[in-house]
Simulated assay, not measured.
Amino acid sequence: MSPKTSTSERQRNSAMTTGRIVVLALAVLGLVFIFQNTQSTEIRILVPLVVTPLWLALLATGVIGALVGYVLARRRR
């Protein structure tokens, strides 16, 4: 980095920013929550009734939410 690089630019380029640490901690907590809920559950997907482990339903919901957030964040740029 050049001496003219501002502190905010160095922080933005740092590998472990505060935002990334928070996201990582929330992801770990989410995974712990998902894998603690292992019982089966019934889910109605439009018409059919599906019996699946709760952890799989929670994980699928989390992945769908992450994908939607990613797409919306990219459209904003």
Rank of each mutant, 00 (worst) to 15 (best):
S2E: 12
P3D: 15
T5I: 07
S6H: 06
S6V: 01
S8K: 14
S8P: 02
E9K: 14
E9A: 15
R10F: 02
R10A: 08
Q11P: 04
Q11Y: 13
Q11R: 15
R12Q: 14
N13D: 15
M16T: 11
T17N: 11
T18V: 15
G19Q: 05
R20S: 01
I21D: 00
V22N: 05
V22Y: 05
V22D: 05
A25C: 12
A25F: 15
A25I: 15
A27D: 05
V28I: 15
L29V: 09
L29G: 15
G30I: 03
L31G: 01
L31C: 04
L31T: 01
V32R: 05
V32D: 02
V32I: 14
V32K: 02
V32H: 03
F33A: 11
F33I: 02
I34Y: 00
I34K: 00
I34M: 09
Q36E: 10
T38F: 09
T38W: 11
T41A: 08
E42K: 12
E42V: 07
I43K: 05
I43C: 01
R44Q: 13
I45G: 00
L46E: 08
V47G: 06
V47E: 10
P48L: 10
L49A: 09
L49I: 12
T52A: 15
T52K: 01
P53V: 02
P53S: 00
L54T: 13
L54R: 13
W55F: 14
W55Y: 14
L56H: 03
L56E: 06
L58N: 09
L59Y: 02
L59C: 01
L59E: 06
A60T: 13
A60S: 13
A60M: 06
T61I: 04
T61R: 03
G62H: 02
V63Q: 06
V63E: 07
I64F: 15
G65E: 03
A66R: 02
A66M: 11
L67G: 06
L67Q: 07
G69K: 01
G69Y: 03
Y70P: 00
Y70M: 10
L72P: 01
A73I: 09
R74M: 10
R74H: 09
R75C: 02
R77N: 05
R77Q: 10
R77Y: 03
